[in-house]
């Protein structure tokens, strides 16, 4: 579904991603972990098409197509969903008109007729229950005045409405209490099918108790320095990132050392 080859990007001349290789197949759940500043959020933003990052090298193939050629909205309509680490507040734009516009743009892309107001409301209600979101939230402006947890739930709610093929969840767990975390994870799990895939970006292993990954990648200093299964996440939880940093720094220096 997604094939990233030697992806390098920079912002204001500073290189952030220094050659990423990653392949994600339908039905898979990938977790990307790593210390602060390693480039996790950059990777997510680049996949969604944020143009402040310059791609200097490499390719990203999505369903056999060059992803980097597409505008953010076309990527979204083709099924890429980014759950923002810091969802943007947009005062004055009501959640309802925002979502309806988004859903109908997706439908238009699939050559489907736009949803009637009543059908749209029905679907909204369904999805709301699924992510246990307060029904009042949809009467407000996009993310405006939402608490941290509400914002994250709102991201999952949008994901439920838009039914993406590839969901990239950027630190969706940060700032969530245990109940909200469970709700968010349940939402993700319910939406999981054999046809879609999920990339979960996280700091902590905690979320992976709920969303079980098939692969765990460790991103450090702009590169994936280690790939494993969910056991790797446990190991990280126990030992922290320092040993990975050391190992990777040594490798960079040309030494292959087992710690």
């Amino acid at each position: 579904m997604l094939k990233i080859t030697n992806l390098r990007t920079s912002i204001n001349g500073k290189e952030i991603l220094k050659g990423i290789d990653l392949e994600v197949k339908a039905g898979e759940v990938h977790a990307i972990m790593g210390p602060n500043g390693s480039g996790k959020s950059t990777l997510a933003s680049v996949l969604a098409g944020r143009d402040i990052y310059e791609v200097t090298e490499g390719t990203v193939e999505y369903e056999g197509e060059d992803l980097l050629d597409l505008t953010p909205e076309v990527r979204a309509r083709k099924g890429i969903f980014l759950g923002f680490q810091y969802p943007i507040e947009i005062p004055g734009v009501s959640m309802a008109s925002f979502l309806r516009t988004a859903v109908n743009e997706h439908r238009k892309f699939k050559a489907l007729a736009p949803l009637s107001a009543s059908d749209f409301l029905k679907i909204m209600r369904e999805k709301k229950e699924m992510v246990e979101i307060d029904s009042n939230l949809t009467n407000r402006s996009v993310n405006e005045g939402f608490s941290g947890g509400e914002k994250k739930k709102n991201e999952i709610f949008q994901m439920a409405l838009l039914e993406p093929k590839l969901a990239i969840l950027d630190e969706t767990d940060s700032g969530l209490d245990i109940d909200a975390l469970r709700i968010v994870a349940n939402g993700v799990n319910k939406l999981k099918t054999a046809e879609n895939a999920t990339i979960v970006i996280t700091h902590y292993q905690r979320l992976l108790d709920y969303i079980v990954p098939d692969f765990v990648h460790v991103l450090y200093n702009g590169r994936i320095v280690k790939t494993g299964t969910k056991e790797l996440a446990f190991e990280l939880e126990e030992r922290g990132y320092d040993w990975i940093k050391k190992e990777s720094d040594l490798k960079l220096n040309g030494e292959d050392v087992k710690i």
Binding site: I52, T71, P72, I88, I90, V93, S97, F98, F109
Partner: peptide, 28 residues
């Protein structure tokens, strides 16, 4: 620009996103 990207990342076209944001600005 951040709000614009957020809207576009949900599949809303750039033109439509700009209009939404302009309207939101006026709506106050």
């Amino acid at each position: 620009e951040n709000a614009l990207f957020y809207l576009r990342s949900r599949g809303i076209s750039e033109r439509e996103s700009r209009l939404l944001l302009m309207y939101a600005f006026a709506f106050e």
